[in-house]
Amino acid sequence: MLPMIYFVLLGLIAAGSAVCVFLSKNPLYGALSLVVTMVSLAGIYGLLASPFVGVVQVMVYAGAIMMLLTFVIMILNAARDVVTPRFDRVSIFVLPAILVLAGLLAFVLISTPLQFHAEAVRGSVALTSATLFDMSKEGPGYFILFEAIGLLLLSAMATAVLLAKKRLGTPERETVSKEVH
């Protein structure tokens, strides 16, 4: 009973703030609503007896990625100069996709009974690590994927740094030559 109430509350907050992301004209308000969605999602993960995933959600998404996003919004000052239109040409494709997804979710929710077993441990720290780093041959082999993603991220980061350095390097020379004149 109690988990059910929590679930409904958190779900309402998550869905409501997700709608806010969609509706808000100001990018910063949108980003903040997204943070609220993330945090309430983390709460739902906690309800599903996988607090580790929930905490990682808060740390990585709400804490780091969204912080970076707000950082970018503030640095570009997009919030003040650019008002994003609520609907544009892309919305024609996005809206049906959202509707289909919502329909699917609703179907799944109706067809399966809503129940919570607080005792059922789905994603504890030990379970997560055991599944992720199961090196045995008959294991799921996630660790290879894990390493591959790590490598991919590293190469992406290196590329980003390289690109940023190139972009930063060129205008500097121009300003120097202007000053000489």
């Binding site: 943070v35 945090v39 983390a42 607090p51 580790f52 905490v55 990682v56 808060v58 740390m59 709400a62 804490g63 780091a64 912080m67």
Partner: peptide, 10 residues
Amino acid sequence: VLLLFGLSSL
């Protein structure tokens, strides 16, 4: 301790 870090990052 992870929960604490998550909160303090917020």
